[in-house]
Measured scan of single mutants.
Amino acid sequence: KEMRNAYWEIALLPNLNNQQKRAFIRSLYDDPSQSANLLAEAKKLNDAQA
């Protein structure tokens, strides 16, 4: 469930391009235990690109 939530949050971040989203989501599938960390990194990048 945590992975699914992280997937959708990443997919809906407005300032990431599709390539960036795909990279984060690929990492999510590679290591679901890192969901919270990956989401935090994606949000950080999203904010930096705002």
Rank of each mutant, 00 (worst) to 15 (best):
Y7Q: 10
Q49S: 06
A23L: 14
F24Y: 07
I10M: 03
S35E: 07
P32L: 04
W8D: 06
L28N: 01
A48R: 09
L12E: 08
N17I: 03
A36D: 08
K43F: 09
A23S: 12
L45W: 03
L39F: 04
A48G: 09
L38T: 05
N17M: 05
N17E: 05
Y29G: 04
K1S: 12
E2G: 07
Q49V: 08
K21A: 02
E41S: 10
L12T: 12
N15P: 00
R4A: 09
M3S: 08
A40Q: 12
S33M: 11
N15I: 01
Q19E: 12
L28G: 01
F24A: 02
R4Q: 11
L45Y: 04
I10Q: 00
K44N: 05
L38F: 05
D47F: 11
A23D: 05
Q19D: 11
I25M: 15
L13W: 03
Q34I: 06
A36Y: 14
W8Q: 10
M3K: 06
N18A: 09
L38C: 03
L39V: 11
Q20Y: 02
Y7M: 14
D30W: 12
M3A: 08
P14I: 08
E9V: 15
N15K: 05
K43L: 08
A11S: 14
L12G: 09
R22P: 01
Q20T: 04
A11Y: 15
L13Y: 04
L12D: 06
Y7A: 09
L28E: 00
L45C: 03
N46C: 02
N17D: 05
S35L: 10
N18F: 13
D47L: 14
A50E: 12
K1Y: 04
Y29D: 03
E9C: 12
D47G: 08
A40S: 09
P32N: 03
D30Q: 15
L45R: 03
L28F: 03
F24I: 03
R4D: 08
L45G: 01
I10A: 00
W8V: 12
M3W: 14
E41K: 14
E2T: 10
P32E: 04
Y7C: 07
K43S: 04
P32C: 03
Y29L: 09
E41F: 13
S27N: 08
A48W: 13
N46Y: 01
N5R: 15
A42D: 00
E2A: 06
I25G: 02
D47K: 11
E9L: 15
N37Q: 09
L16W: 00
L28W: 04
F24H: 01
D47Y: 12
I10C: 01
A40R: 13
K1D: 14
Q20I: 04
R4M: 15
N37A: 06
N37F: 13
D47V: 11
I10H: 00
R26L: 14
N46L: 01
E9T: 13
L13M: 12
L38Y: 07
I10L: 09
L38D: 01
E2W: 02
S33V: 05
A6Y: 12
A11D: 03
S27K: 13
I10V: 04
S35G: 08
N15L: 04
S27P: 02
P14R: 12
L39K: 04
M3N: 07
N18T: 07
D30Y: 09
P14T: 07
K1Q: 09
M3R: 07
N37R: 14
I25N: 02
R4G: 09
R26G: 03
A42Q: 00
R4E: 13
D31S: 11
L39R: 08
A42W: 01
A40C: 05
R26F: 14
P32I: 05
W8I: 12
Y29T: 09
N5D: 10
A11I: 14
K21Y: 02
A40Y: 12
Q20V: 04
R4K: 11
I10W: 01
F24E: 00
L39M: 08
R22Y: 15
Q20W: 02
S35T: 05
K43T: 04
W8A: 09
R22S: 08
K1E: 14
Y29F: 13
N46D: 05
A50R: 05
L39W: 04
E2N: 10
L13A: 04
E2K: 10
A50I: 12
Q49A: 10
R4F: 14
N15S: 05
R22E: 07
A40H: 09
S35N: 04
Y7H: 08
R22N: 10
S35A: 07
R4H: 14
L13N: 01
A23R: 12
A23E: 04
L28Q: 01
L28H: 01
D47I: 13
K44W: 11
K43V: 08
L45P: 00
A11E: 06
Q20C: 06
Q49Y: 11
A36H: 11
L12Q: 13
Q49M: 09
R26E: 04
F24Q: 01
M3G: 08
S27L: 13
M3T: 12
L45S: 02
K43P: 00
R26K: 06
N17Q: 04
E9Y: 15
A36I: 09
D30R: 15
S35P: 02
L39C: 04
I25S: 02
S33G: 11
L13V: 01
L13C: 02
N17R: 07
Q20R: 02
Q20P: 00
I25P: 00
K21T: 02
A6T: 10
L28D: 00
L45H: 03
Q19M: 06
S35C: 06
N5I: 13
A42R: 00
Q19W: 14
R22Q: 10
A40D: 08
I25F: 15
L16Q: 00
A6C: 04
K44G: 05
E41I: 12
I25Q: 10
Y7T: 08
A48D: 10
N5Q: 14
N5V: 13
A11P: 02
A40M: 14
S33I: 04
K21Q: 02
L28K: 00
L38V: 09
A11G: 04
D30T: 14
A23Q: 09
K44D: 06
Q49W: 08
S27M: 09
N15V: 02
E41Y: 14
Y29S: 06
R26Y: 13
I25H: 08
L38R: 04
K21E: 01
Y7D: 02
K44A: 07
A42N: 00
A23G: 09
L38E: 01
A50K: 08
R22T: 09
P14Y: 05
F24C: 02
L13Q: 03
N37E: 10
N18Q: 12
D30I: 13
A36L: 10
Y29K: 10
E9G: 11
Q49P: 03
S33L: 06
L16G: 00
K44F: 09
W8E: 07
A11L: 15
D30C: 14
K21C: 03
A50Q: 08
A50T: 06
E2Q: 08
S33P: 04
Y7G: 09
Q49R: 07
Y7F: 11
N18D: 06
K21P: 00
K1H: 15
N46S: 05
K21M: 03
Y29C: 06
P14Q: 08
L16A: 00
K21G: 00
A36S: 11
A50P: 06
